[in-house]
């Protein structure tokens, strides 16, 4: 222990306080509460709490996230990344649903309800059968298809050639041709008062979904 109590500020957290906020679940199951839930129960709970955005079969409604499908599309031009096709750990599904879903009404599900919803998402991805019951005990037995699909940031090796402090300064290329124009795609919102119509949302499927953060 290094320099504990250096300024004497703050106060000890109580066990109840820690239990209330410390809810993260790790890939090895650390943090999972007691409980269980079936695909059958999950289907009903999902229909009531989730399907309005994510679809009856977790296939997604409109622009809302698809939770199922997309297996073997990750090397395609437009990969479909879902719990089944992309997510490496089931713990993340449990943790995220428990803490942050349903959208707009988070932290309202009981542990058993979360187990049931996660079981239903697995079923929707054809990873378990309709008799399946997910519990704290069998949680780590579920195999996620893309568990081995991730590598740790390798830019320092794979992109070592970008460390090139003496790039070309003169006579670097013969000709310059335009190969793509944003104005042709025309999906940029227009400034108020311009004559052009507002951008059509037609490019949703072509465009990468925004995955951003402040």
């Amino acid at each position: 222990p290094a320099l504990a109590g250096k300024y004497g500020l703050g106060r000890p957290a109580t066990p109840d306080e820690i239990a209330a906020w410390n809810k993260d679940v790790r890939p090895d199951g650390t943090g999972l509460p007691e409980g269980s839930g079936s695909v059958e129960d999950g289907e009903m709970i999902f229909a009531e709490n989730c399907a309005v955005c994510h679809g009856d079969f977790a296939e997604g409604v409109g622009n809302w996230p698809k939770l199922a499908g997309g297996q073997d599309t990750l090397d395609h031009q437009d990969p479909l990344k879902t719990v089944g096709s992309y997510w490496p750990y089931l713990s993340t599904t449990w943790d995220y649903v428990n803490r942050s879903m349903p959208f707009g009404n988070a932290q309202t599900l009981s542990p058993d309800e979360v187990y049931a919803i996660v079981a239903y998402i697995l079923y929707s991805n054809d990873l378990v059968d309709d008799e399946f019951v997910l519990s704290k005990e069998n949680f780590l037995e579920v195999e996620m298809p893309n568990a081995d699909g991730f590598i740790i940031d390798d830019r320092l090796e794979a992109e070592a050639h970008f460390w090139n402090p003496e790039p070309c300064m003169e006579n670097c290329k013969e000709s310059v041709e335009i190969t793509m124009r944003a104005a042709v795609l025309d999906v940029t919102p227009q400034e108020e008062g311009t004559e052009e119509a507002a951008a059509e949302p037609a490019a949703t499927e072509e465009a990468a979904p925004v995955e951003a953060a402040a």
């Binding site: 990750l74 090397d75 990344k81 993340t92 942050s100 699909g149 740790i152």
Partner: peptide, 30 residues
């Protein structure tokens, strides 16, 4: 003692390469 591998570092903020594998923990902005 270990990363949580939360939604924001598995489903999101992982970078899929052409062969279908994905980089995770791409923290630095180049």
């Amino acid at each position: 003692d270990a990363p949580v591998e939360s939604r924001e570092e598995t489903s999101k903020y992982t970078d899929t390469l052409a062969d279908g594998t994905s980089r995770k923990w791409t923290w630095e902005m180049d």
